[in-house]
């Protein structure tokens, strides 16, 4: 089964993170939530592989329960 890549994979990690936060700057929570939802759907479609998506969802849930 294909797994999601959990090794560092983004060049310029700090830049990416700053950009991610910047799109939410000054926005009400509902607007931020909408942007996040659209972002997840865009990224999920780009990945496409169903097994990778399931693995990502599982890891996202489990990580928060540690």
């Amino acid at each position: 089964m294909s797994k999601i890549n959990t090794q560092p994979n983004i060049a310029g990690a700090d830049d990416f993170y700053a950009e991610l936060l910047a799109i939410h700057d000054g926005r009400p929570k509902a607007e931020s939530d909408a942007i996040n939802a659209r972002l997840i759907l865009l990224l999920a479609n780009h990945i496409g592989d169903r097994a990778v998506l399931t693995d990502a969802m599982t890891k996202a849930v489990d990580c928060g329960h540690r």
Partner: peptide, 14 residues
């Protein structure tokens, strides 16, 4: 739920 509505509307906007 609020979250399922956010995803639903995200799908429609996209």
């Amino acid at each position: 739920s609020e979250t399922s509505r956010a995803f639903r509307n995200a799908v429609l906007d996209l």
